[in-house]
């Protein structure tokens, strides 16, 4: 049944495909909204949906209003934008590299943010407030380094992937070395490496929001160019696309989106890899639909997983990265066995 629907989505009849895509996007919208409301309801204190909606508009008072406005709403929003940014970055990179395994790790973003964050957390723990900007700078620096190493009269996807693996391994060695030398201070760093949203609040939202808005708009702007790029370099060029420039700009957009996400939430894996695949399965590979679908699905996924992570073993909170990997890895295997 589902397979038939998917077959419909990806061909057969032009009109039904357009309808299907629109319906899917509306479903993703509702799902993202639904998980957000669910996330606002659940926690140490369960709050009814009606109060949640009131509170989200800033109208509720009392304890539940306080809990929602000061704790759950900002955390949910941060989670949503982290998910959106990582999923969009992954979707963009999969087109730019023409490689289904591309995700934000591949351009060195995670290892760059990781090393910078770890340096602050382990060597300068009194300056913890610098973790976010340092991680952002680390991520961008690593992405630029990968780009420079991959440059040889132009950019080829294979060279980017190889340079990305090399840079990641190199920076990873730095991370491991720090953790071994300062094994007594590893705890905080470990939480950050796994990726989590605990204690994320309004200031974090203000950090990620501009990148989400600007990066998101720029990504949509480039949607049709990504479609053309997906036909291969030679075809894209003969259709009048500036292939090198497009690849450079879209990689930079992906780097900004992903770097802003990891700088507030740590090294959250799998969202950038799996969500675009799942979205592609449902709406097809046209980036004008795939980008919004990935964004909404990424939002819903991270918000939902974070809600599970903080309520499953309450009062103990799991980092959302663990839930993501637990749920993501089997799903990823399922996708692989289905497609390859």
């Amino acid at each position: 049944m589902i397979k038939k629907k998917i077959a419909n989505a990806v061909g057969v009849n032009g009109l039904s495909r357009a309808v299907w895509r629109a319906v899917m996007l509306i479903c993703f919208c509702l799902a993202a909204l639904g998980t957000a409301i669910f996330s606002l309801m659940k926690g140490a204190m369960n709050i009814p949906a009606a109060d949640v909606i009131q509170a989200a508009w800033g109208k509720a008072s009392g304890v539940s209003g306080q809990v929602i406005w000061n704790i759950r709403l900002p955390r949910t929003l941060v989670g949503g934008f982290v998910g959106m940014n990582l999923a969009m970055a992954g979707a963009i990179l999969q087109a730019v590299m023409r490689n289904p395994l591309a995700d934000p790790h591949i351009i060195g973003i995670s290892s760059g943010a990781g090393l910078a964050g770890i340096i602050i957390l382990i060597l300068f723990p009194q300056m913890e407030y610098l973790v976010t900007p340092a991680a952002f700078l680390g991520a961008m620096a690593a992405a630029i380094l990968v780009y420079i190493l991959a440059w040889k009269g132009g950019i080829r996807p294979v060279r980017i992937i190889l340079a990305g693996v090399a840079v990641s391994a190199f920076l990873g060695a730095g991370i491991s070395a720090l953790m071994v030398f300062y094994s007594d201070r590893v705890h905080g760093a470990l939480m950050w490496m796994v990726g989590g949203l605990s204690a994320r609040s309004w200031p974090h939202l203000y950090i990620i929001l501009p990148y989400s808005v600007i990066g998101g708009l720029m990504a949509f702007w480039y949607a049709q160019k990504l479609n053309i790029l997906n036909l291969g370099d030679e075809v894209a060029r003969s259709l009048g696309l500036k292939v090198e420039v497009t690849r450079l700009v879209t990689t930079a957009i992906a780097a900004l989106l992903a770097a802003s996400a990891v700088s507030v939430a740590g090294l959250l894996g799998f969202v950038g890899l799996i969500v675009p695949h799942a979205a592609r399965l449902l709406v097809g590979s046209d980036y004008r639909y795939l980008l919004p679908a990935s964004a909404l699905m990424g939002m819903g996924t991270v918000i939902f997983c974070d809600t599970v992570a903080r309520t499953l073993f309450a009062p103990i909170e799991l980092p959302v990265g663990i839930i993501m990997a637990l749920a993501g890895a089997p799903f990823f295997l399922y996708l692989l066995r289905r497609e390859v």
Partner: peptide, 15 residues
């Protein structure tokens, strides 16, 4: 000018 190269492939759902 339009150019067609050998072995161009489109993504699997492009009609």
């Amino acid at each position: 000018m339009a150019v067609l190269f050998q072995s161009s492939t489109a993504p699997s759902d492009v009609t």
